[in-house]
Design a protein around this nucleic acid. Structure first.
Lengths: 342, 342
DNA sequence: CTGAAAGCGCTAACAC
DNA sequence: GTGTTAGCGCTTTCAG
């Protein structure tokens, strides 16, 4: 072939064996600095870099990680995380020559089938699991498949794979509730996600705990499937109560935006008649009218931490055991304020 | 290894050669139905499926396609496309056993470097290029690298790789402008993207053409870098004009939302004082107050069409030559209406 | 300190 | 019709 250069060609041109080339490239063997340089130079000259498939076959390592995302047809909550999470992952993977294989699925069943396929074909070295849930079938599955994994949004101890991100998240929610309490709110409601999701549970618990500290209980905790329609319905139900809440904490910004829209459509003013807190810190929230008060959960950092954990698991050396940096923090803007009905 | 079964094991157990197993699996050889069945059965029994790396090495085909996305740090316009596009791609790739390798980059230069790396390592069979631009360096580059590609948002003829999606997009914009004209608007402005992007150009041209048909010219066409801040600034500038527009057409929903927020913050009512049209049909737009009038550009279909085109290019048979279905269409909601200042 | 040789698991071309 | 053979390009022992 006149095509892509191979290791053989490089070896010939540099006057060494193919093994030497490999060693020079991977810094693995014991080569003299001179030959090492020479090899590397000829390699660059020829524009050669090793075939990923050949290396993968030989090492049984693909340097590829899987990220499976449940298809966000209706789940807008998934969206923002999504790209931020990937940014975080990529930041750690890319410099080390790792790639991210992305797949979209409709549900957990399909997701499991996919892992089976990926493992059977040795297509990836590991997987990032998102949205830990109660009795999550994926950790035991991946364990059985021998596929390294990190679980996002889980506590760590209880699951069978290392996980990252949950414990830290409560802080942001607590801060949000304290903020509302400080503004004088006493009738506070929650519009949250499906109860199976661990982060939904943990955030819910955080809200309850913080309210309990003030001797209060939430007006109501409404579980949704994260769709906009559900957020709208939940908000309408809350506002129709005899004693409606004066503040609502939503499980994500998208739902919070729906909530604001719903309140405004009923002629209510935000925040005077209803205070709204989101979660995610979508860029958009900053420009709405009113600007959205929200919790910045630093998904990007979570992604980076997950990537590091996974890389360490698949045996990548030189990966810092850096803990998750960046705690969630409340971003106070205009959608919260004291309750001052007309 | 007690580990993953190999083709050899399957062959032994089925009492055939490894070649026979391969042929049975790929339906490529000339095997008797009997042995074929037997092989497939033992394979399933052992839970064997071929190693992706080995097959890739042998065929010099990875069954992986690359999607490189410019990092949406500040560019919210990229976000929604992103997941919808991937959904569209995946729908065609997944059933055929193809994977999508996702990479994020900061700019075109970095993107090009990435393609060089991917090609040099034969990591992917092809690439999906997004956001065609004037004098786009990527098509010639990929051509030189011998990497099949599709270009999204380009006309087709002028570029060096097949492309999909641009010509069709003008229709939606034209419809939007006609809608505004029908509502009686005469002072119409545009807040659009960077002039290098072909879709920005083509949509701009479509607006001009449609206005010209009514003997009008846009109040102004403001180019932005798609950031929210720029959208806000552009809107403020427009509203500060001696003769401000009564309607603004934004290049995406995110900017449109910023526009609405900016107008409202100045005490203007949407749509009575300012009509706003977006582009993308983000789920969120439906729930804002007012609900956003926008153009649904059917990115998912574009993604699916792109995937089909690329699969055909990499020699996948059985890929329907289905044209792009789903033209963009205007979704009229509440952010547009006749101009009725107080 | 370096090179030769033996595969990794699979498939495409060939003998039977 | 069916099976055997020869690598794909690389890495990793192991001799030298």
């Amino acid at each position: 072939m006149s095509g892509r250069p191979t290791i053989k060609r490089v070896a010939e041109l540099a006057g060494v064996s193919t093994a030497a080339v490999s060693q020079a490239l991977n810094g693995t063997g014991r080569l003299s600095e001179a030959t090492r340089r020479r090899v590397l130079d000829t390699a660059r000259e020829l524009g050669w870099s090793p075939s990923a498939s050949a290396a993968a076959l030989r090492r049984s390592r693909t340097r590829t990680l899987a990220l499976v995302v449940r298809r966000p047809t209706d789940v807008l909550g998934a969206d923002p995380h999504f790209s931020e999470l990937i940014t975080g992952l990529e930041g750690e993977l890319s410099p080390r020559g790792y790639g991210l294989l992305l797949h979209l699925v409709d549900d957990v069943r399909e997701e499991s089938a996919l892992y089976e396929r990926l493992a059977a074909g040795s297509r990836v070295d590991g997987a990032v699991l998102t949205d830990a849930r109660a009795d999550d079938p994926r950790p035991p599955l991946l364990r059985r498949l021998g596929l390294p994994a990190v679980l996002l949004g889980a506590g760590g101890q209880e699951s069978q794979v290392p996980s990252v991100g949950l414990a830290e998240q409560e802080a942001g929610v607590r801060e949000a509730v304290r903020h509302l309490l400080a503004l004088g709110h006493r009738r506070i409601a929650c519009v949250t996600g499906p109860g199976e999701l661990l982060h939904t549970r943990s955030r819910g618990a955080a809200v309850l705990a913080e309210l309990a500290g003030a001797g209060l209980r939430p007006v109501r905790v409404v579980h949704t499937d994260f769709t906009e329609a559900a957020a709208v319905r939940a908000t309408e139900d809350l506002l129709a109560l005899a004693q409606p809440p004066t503040a609502v904490v939503y499980a994500n910004d998208s739902m919070a935006v729906c909530g604001i829209g719903t309140a405004q459509r009923r002629g209510l003013r935000v925040p005077q008649d209803l205070a709204v807190v989101g979660y995610d810190n979508l860029p958009l929230g900053r420009w709405l009218h009113p600007r959205l008060t929200t919790v910045d959960q630093q998904v990007r950092q979570v992604g980076a931490a997950a990537a590091r954990e996974l890389l360490r698991q698949v045996g990548e050396s030189q990966v810092p055991d850096a803990p998750l940096t960046g705690r969630p923090r409340l971003v106070v803007r205009e959608s919260t304020g004291p309750h001052t009905p007309r």
